[in-house]
Design a protein around this nucleic acid. Structure first.
Length: 445
RNA sequence: GACCCUAUCGUCCAGUGGCCUAGGACACUCCCCUUUCACGGGAGUAACACGGGUUCGAAUCCCGUUAGGGUCGCCA
């Protein structure tokens, strides 16, 4: 526990939240929670042309979806705000004047550059170790620009100023910033402040090792939201990219991850992104989550598909038998829809393969009338009735199950048939079976 | 090109000098379970990039090569 720990995620609003950025945010968040410190969100919107309110919202939505709540930042307040760089002009101006009067700056074609002290700078990185950078050669390490001729600010400068002002203790960021760090250290020194500790985490690349760009599958957090991933599963998968609990476990609860997480245990190798494994974890989470959580996550997709499920009480039993089949939440409407309408569609291939059997209509009608006479309508009596009818017809139970499944659902696959029929009810089951026998089957031979 | 980081199955992660005939997971193949599809259970294919050292002993330490990634902006 170290309540002095203050970390930040400082994204630029580019219109999407990159999966690598999300993991950076996650590692910062985990570190803050692990230490009992603070997690700060700062929006680096100095590039006025590119930044929009919508682009900011995408980031906030993504972080909220993943459950990465921030202690200070947009909509959260905090004593070191504002948390948008576009609103911190006067602060930058103050530091700018300080550096200028100490003769660290010079003008070059209207822009302002920082005069490098030309030294060997040591970065003592929490993850990468001790690294020496030789900045003595101006040819290979030109002085950095910190302010444009139009008065706007450059990333390196505002990033450092804000980390000072916001009392950031640890900077956990992508390895793409490792080579920038000595420059930042020069700035801290010139300003006269102790720099934070740095930890550069490896990058996330595509499965083939290429750089992940906006269009690549899985690159944007928005796609996980829209394609029906459970946030806890995505969070878990992201944890495993560059970090592990060291005991071969894959599925880890958040509380435990917070307890075990440490920067020293983050590895230094770039990770290749594997959407298949993420999807597997998603299925694991869904199958093991409580029914009410599954319902909560499914509802947006069910509503979007405009399924008239009536009440939650009538939806819940259906979700219960369908839950173990779901990999993407987007699949829920597909498995659920036919319980709530008589207008369900038939898969042409199922009609051809199963209902095309010349015996299908007779078998459906025979079973339907057997169903009419069962004492009660529960799992056991449905099963007993079906098996007795199969015996009576001299066929295997499976030969009765298949056409019945297609008749009541229009599909060749689905949840346990007995469970389906129980939920559907006796009347609807019989009606669907007879209607199907009349209208969907080939004429009996 | 210069500088920096990295290098274990196709992928993610274990492994920090002997317990490694290298372990787990995803994916893939096969088998079992089963009314379907899944789930679950079992088995299998598959890796220490290469070359030098150091050491009684190296996936683990050192050097080099190669490969991948990053940075070198008046982008962030």
């Amino acid at each position: 526990m170290n309540p002095e720990v203050r970390v930040r995620f400082a994204p630029s609003p580019t219109g999407y939240l990159h999966v690598g950025g999300a993991r950076t945010a996650l590692f910062n968040w985990l570190y803050a929670r692990h230490c009992g410190g603070k997690f700060i969100l700062r929006i680096e919107d100095t590039d006025k042309a590119r930044n929009t309110q919508e682009a900011v919202q995408v980031i906030l939505d993504g972080l909220n979806w993943l459950g990465l709540t921030w202690d200070e930042g947009p909509n959260a307040g905090g004593e070191f705000g504002p948390y948008f760089q576009s609103e911190r002009e006067s602060i930058y101006e103050r530091y700018f004047q300080q550096l200028k009067s100490a003769n660290h700056l010079y003008e070059d074609n209207g822009a302002w550059r920082f005069r490098s002290p030309r030294e060997i700078v040591v970065v003592d990185d929490l993850i990468c170790g001790r690294i020496e950078f030789d900045l003595t050669n101006p040819e290979t390490h030109p002085d950095m620009t910190i302010r444009r001729p139009d008065g706007s600010w450059i990333f390196h400068f505002v990033n450092v100023v804000d980390d000072i002002e916001m009392k950031i203790s640890h900077v956990i960021r992508g390895e793409d910033h490792l080579s920038n760090t000595p420059k930042h250290l020069e700035l801290f020194k010139a300003i006269g402040c102790t720099p934070p500790r740095y930890g550069h985490i490896p990058l996330i690349l595509n499965k083939d090792g290429s750089k992940m760009s906006k269009r690549d599958a899985g690159a944007s957090i928005t796609t996980y939201i829209e394609e029906g991933y459970a946030p806890e599963a995505v969070r878990n998968y992201l944890c495993l990219l560059g970090w592990s609990p060291k005991d071969n476990r894959e599925k880890l609860e958040l509380e435990e991850t917070v307890r075990l997480f440490d920067l020293e245990k983050v590895n230094r190798k770039n990770a290749h992104f594997d959407l298949d494994k993420c999807l597997w974890l998603n299925g694991q989470y869904i199958i093991q989550m409580p029914l009410d959580r599954f319902c909560e996550l499914s509802l947006p997709f069910i509503n979007k598909a405009e399924i008239q499920y009536g009440s939650i009480d009538s939806l819940l039993p259906v979700l219960a038998i369908v839950k173990e089949k779901i990999k993407h939440l987007t699949e829920v409407p597909h498995w659920v829809s036919y319980f709530f309408t008589e207008e369900y569609t038939f898969d042409p291939e199922a009609i051809h393969k199963t209902l095309g059997n010349p015996n299908a209509p007779e078998r459906l009608r025979t079973l339907a009338s057997a169903f009419k006479n069962t004492d009660s309508w529960d799992l056991a009596s449905i099963e007993a009735s079906l098996k007795a009818t199969a015996t009576q017809l001299g066929i295997k139970a499976g030969e009765l199950v298949a056409p019945t499944r297609v008749a009541v659902s229009g599909r060749a696959s689905g949840p346990s048939l007995y469970h389906m029929l129980e939920i559907l009810g006796r009347e609807r089951t019989i009606s669907r079976m007879n209607t199907t026998a009349d209208t969907k089957c080939s004429p009996a031979a």
